[in-house]
Amino acid sequence: MTAPPGLQVDGLRKRFGGVSALDDASLAVKPGELHALIGPNGAGKTTLIQLVSGAERADAGRIVLDGAVIDGLPMHRRVALGLARSFQISSVFPAFTVLENVALAIQARSRARCAVWRPVAGQAALFEPARRVLDVVGLGARSDIAAGALSHGERRRLEIGLTVATGARLLLLDEPLAGLGPDESARVVALLRTFKGQAGILLVEHDMDAVFQLADRISVLVHGRVIASGVPQAIRAHPEVRRAYLGESTA
């Protein structure tokens, strides 16, 4: 049996103390598709990102990336195999310039990532691709200032830039629109649209307008279980989803 390409998550379980955060959660992200994961607060969305990215270990279940079983691997090995995540609260390197931030992510996949002799400064092989990533996320003009000095919106985009720069084929994006105003939000939505087809994306997001604009498919997580998976129209019409989630939020 050969597993299909993309990401398969099968029967993930995780308990914290006596509380079940994920209970037999399963979903699949096809290559190049933008797959949104929605659900009410506390449904286990962030836990799922934590488990799939390798930040925490699942109690049970299987995670398969392009046919390779990756659960049990440390996070950095999963990144090397092509699976990278972003953080709900921007996580950058404040003392490094914006350009150096992204260059680190490029360095992570270079063969000499831990070399001890040749200075990093002036290594075009690191900084050229980093500049291209910054142009894509719209931070090209801010490349030389310290990441700690960026505005919240700019930091959200650097967060995405760091994740993209790893070269991963599958991105786990944890609420990239969190805390953004309408203008910045529209900008990031446009950015995410450009990634479609290039990389598979599992998008966790609360902004329903953005989700229904962007997603090729949507999975709904309620009480640690995926209760529905399908194209946006199907999800909108799904009775259980309406009751468990959409009904709640429009009420």
């Binding site: 990215s53 930040a55 440390p74 996070m75 950095h76 990144v79 090397a80 990278a84 995540r85 953080f87 996580s91 950058v92 390197f93 404040p94 003392a95 490094f96 150096e100 680190l104 992510a105 360095q107 992570a108 996949r109 270079s110 000499a112 990532r113 831990c114 070399a115 001890v116 002799w117 040749r118 200075p119 990093v120 400064a121 760091l162 994740t163 720069a165 790893t166």
Partner: peptide
């Protein structure tokens, strides 16, 4: 030399944010 080289950069980046370093693929 070491501090300016990739390993030195990686060490300083880990000092700044070890979780992020692991998340962009470094064996912290």
């Amino acid at each position: 030399r070491l501090l300016n080289a990739p390993l030195g950069r990686a060490l300083q980046a880990i000092r700044d944010n070890d979780v992020r370093m692991e998340a962009i693929g470094f064996p912290v």
